[in-house]
Design a protein around this nucleic acid. Structure first.
Lengths: 345, 345
DNA sequence: AAGGGTCTTGCAAGGTTTTGCGAGAATGTT
DNA sequence: AACATTCTCGCAAAACCTTGCAAGACCCTT
């Protein structure tokens, strides 16, 4: 949240020059312009006095993609809740195009005068860092230091004092696996998202814990990594079917689970008779696949409400939380047993 | 494009009062507030600071909802194309909450300094106006007069000189029905969206035309209206199955078609053996249902590219289209025959 | 009817951004 | 080398927005 004067000082130019750069006016040397722009990249410009409506009633929502239906579902739930509290939402798809990363979108939103933002499955969860350790704080720390209000949804990190709302991924992995074990399965694969994804690693931990309780195999040969997509799910399950021939798999997302079921269908493997499939998310369409998908539901509405409420609490000067301490809410996933899981033949 | 002082003068209040209204501060009489707001509706407020930023590189995307996966798909395609041309996108879900209508979102986007916008299936298509007649121009005309750049995607109206990109809905209805006729079906129902929806009415016209060519029944008893949702599809097909017992149905959207297939499944009616189903949109998940959905594909990528290119053409002063004449591009839908359609038993 | 309280609104001070203007630097011309 | 032209960029004034404060209006109580 830097005004014109801070940026001018950092760039070693006058306020006027910064103003000219921002307004794309002529009369600024290209070299100077670049210097100002690079400073601007470091400290996002948020007009303060003029035009900078402090209470704009607008918040930003950042989702990583739109093709997995869980993100539109979260977006809609967040928007609905925000609208009820008098805020309108600007939605940004951070992986929409190569040139724009999450960071650039944040800067753009700040310049557009959003009061705060909700990050859904933020970039910060994609890190090659052992479980338990804290990843590099990256630019979120800077935003935080600048007093930008934000909330993480399904993507916390202990390194940052940001309120976060998440579903218990590890418990989800455990519950899904437990469900399959109780049905009598003994070879249970994990169709996982990329290895760098923290949620996938947490789910795997839960999966392994459940299996080890019953002395069932939980080695890495039972885990196949692939991108978060239906195609990825198909690829990953193909790999498992070609090697360890599981009788059941759990998946990192419903979206991947749909790919799994399609691959099974194409191979003539019937679900659930020959292969049980458990998804994760409970996207609205999960009930509409056939067989209807057994899945671990994230309480999307409740989580969205919690995230928005927490953000608004910090936005609203009247009811601003006293100690803005690290606020974490963990939601329990809920098993929704439908048709895609059954005892093995 | 008015500053605070113009608005204050127009509303007959002081600048301070307008400022307070804009910032939602307490201490303004409700009556006064409404007066200011109504003036604000007439002359949108654009603070010098932001409004002066002529080339913000930001465009707005307005979609009616997010639960039907076709809209996220369009949004992502639009964003990707825009990003490639150096524009970042702000996405708004106009039906996210009761209080915010499309119109308010437009105003908000304008105040946030967007350069132009793409309306996907805009409100204007929801009108109780006979086919061929022009609906009331509504507030779009005012935007147009103010020089706001916009493009309609799947929602044109001849009354407005706005470039538009659409799929040929009537042809889609015709092609879907033709496909089923050629398979040998004779009782073909139409699971339609609400009667006020122009696209649904166009599809119905195509459906009726195909049926009448072969002297097959095309009466209103073969048409069931329901909201655009999976639940709606289920309700509508239930109504048809209880009355005219069609051997095949076409649907206003894939989303509805999924509901149709679920309802059939629950009634023990097998698809496609006992009921053929043809959807519309070719959402990414259509290939992942089972049976995989036969559908009429909208060329989403191409349409999105056409819409963005047209908008950017008008935005960019260098390559601005000379005669900004009414530009319309109509895309042909494409039949994607998958598993949900087959000859009747 | 007077007094006190609350609500509403404009004024003016204070902070922020834009812009006209001029000085200095860089480049071109004679 | 001297001068003219153009370009850059800061200064300072103007324009603009926010906010504390006080005056006026309205209502209720005494």
């Amino acid at each position: 949240m830097s005004g014109l004067s801070e940026i001018a000082r950092a760039a070693g130019v006058s306020i006027s020059t910064v103003s000219r750069v921002l307004n794309r006016r002529a009369g600024v040397n290209e070299e100077t312009r670049q210097r100002v722009l690079s400073v601007l990249a470091e400290m996002p410009y948020t007009p303060r006095g003029l035009g900078a409506l402090q209470r704009t009633g607008v918040i930003g929502l950042l989702v990583p993609e739109l093709s997995n239906p869980v993100f539109p579902a979260f977006a809609e739930a967040l928007e609905t809740r925000a609208a009820r509290l008098g805020y309108s939402s600007l939605l940004c798809n951070t992986r929409s195009g190569a040139p724009m990363g999450e960071e650039e979108y944040v800067r753009m939103l700040l310049a557009r005068g959003v009061e705060g933002m909700v990050f859904v499955s933020p970039e910060i969860t994609n890190v090659e860092v052992p479980l338990g350790q804290a990843p590099r704080p990256s630019y979120y720390a800077k935003l935080l230091a600048d007093g930008v209000h934000m909330v993480f949804l399904n993507g916390a990190t202990p390194a940052l004092d940001v309120p976060d709302v998440t579903v218990d991924e590890q418990l989800a992995g455990y519950m899904a696996t437990r469900h399959l074990i109780e049905l009598g399965h003994e070879r249970i694969g994990f169709v996982s998202g990329p290895a760098r994804s923290l949620p996938s690693r947490l789910k795997r931990a839960g999966w392994a814990a459940a299996l080890e309780e019953d002395h069932l195999p939980a080695g890495s040969e039972y885990v196949a990594h692939a991108p978060f997509s239906a195609e990825g799910g198909g690829q990953a399950v193909a790999q498992l079917l070609d090697t360890v021939t599981p009788t059941a798999v759990i998946c990192s997302s419903d979206h991947m689970a749909l790919g799994v079921m399609r691959e099974a269908h194409q191979r003539g493997i019937s679900v659930p008779e020959q292969l049980s499939v458990v998804g994760f998310d409970d996207i609205p369409l999960a009930a509409y696949s056939s067989p209807a998908l057994t899945t671990l539901a994230q309480p999307i509405e409740e989580m969205a409400a919690a995230a928005i409420d927490e953000l608004v609490l910090r936005l609203d000067p009247d009811r601003r939380r006293q100690g803005t301490d690290n606020y974490t809410r963990v939601f329990r996933p809920r098993l929704v047993a439908r048709e895609s899981s059954a005892p093995p033949k």
